Amino acid sequence: MFTGIVEELGEVTAVENLGDASRFRLRGPVVTEGARHGDSIAVNGVCLTVVDHGEQEFTADVMAETLNRSSLGALRAGSRVNLERPMAVGGRLGGHIVQGHVDGTGRIVERTVSENWEIVKVSLPAELTRYVVEKGSITVDGVSLTVVDAGPDYFTISLIPTTLALTTLGHKEPGDPVNLEVDVIAKYVERLLGHRAQEPEEPVK
């Protein structure tokens, strides 16, 4: 489990095409410290498994399903990425519960720049709109954020200088894709209520 608090802005150093998958080599001095084979690291909000690691770098294999359902397929050598290790037991939940399982992708629509912050408008796939609410939580490229406004096919987020400086969201331009993960609690509630609605009513005694 992750919290959506990005630990460092890393970089893709190489991408190897494996036919039905890709192997990424990524540089991240912070997240590779103490890393072992089989560990999980979130890359732009996608939970990946460490295949190999060396000094300040690690490799991860990404299958076609992940490449097709996330923005990782657009990454190239030199691309910057948000990196986060899983939360340690007993650690602080600084953001919200993030699984690293991308629900879909959106695109940066526009950026409104202010002196000390920015409002960013992001397109929202129709199948995810029911999970996004004003002042609720959403993960964008692995960053835990609060929804400012929730529209029929978009949402907006407010980015402080720290987020702009230390994550990919400070460098994304209109048209760029971003990974989206909605609040998992909303999905569980929907599933539970759906089952409840389908259950036959008990006869009145």
Rank of each mutant, 00 (worst) to 15 (best):
L83C: 13
E55Y: 09
H37D: 15
V120P: 04
A35Q: 09
M63D: 15
R76L: 10
Q56Y: 08
D20Y: 08
V81E: 01
L124E: 11
N44Q: 11
V122Q: 00
L67I: 13
E84F: 04
T112S: 11
E110I: 07
P29A: 11
S71H: 04
S123G: 06
V51G: 13
R69D: 12
M63Q: 14
S123K: 02
T105K: 01
L48I: 02
G34Q: 00
G54N: 12
E57H: 14
R107P: 09
A88Q: 12
V50E: 10
L93C: 00
E127Q: 08
N68H: 09
V89E: 10
A88K: 11
T66L: 07
I41E: 14
E118H: 09
E118R: 03
V89Q: 07
E65P: 01
A74Y: 04
D39N: 10
R130G: 06
S123L: 00
F24S: 00
V89A: 10
L128Y: 01
A88Y: 05
K121D: 07
V81M: 01
S71P: 01
R85M: 13
S71V: 01
T112I: 14
V102P: 00
R130I: 05
L124N: 07
T129L: 02
E118Y: 05
G90Y: 04
I108Q: 06
S22A: 13
R80K: 13
R23E: 15
E118N: 09
S70I: 06
S71G: 08
T105A: 06
V30T: 13
S22Y: 05
P86T: 02
V113R: 05
S40C: 15
G10T: 05
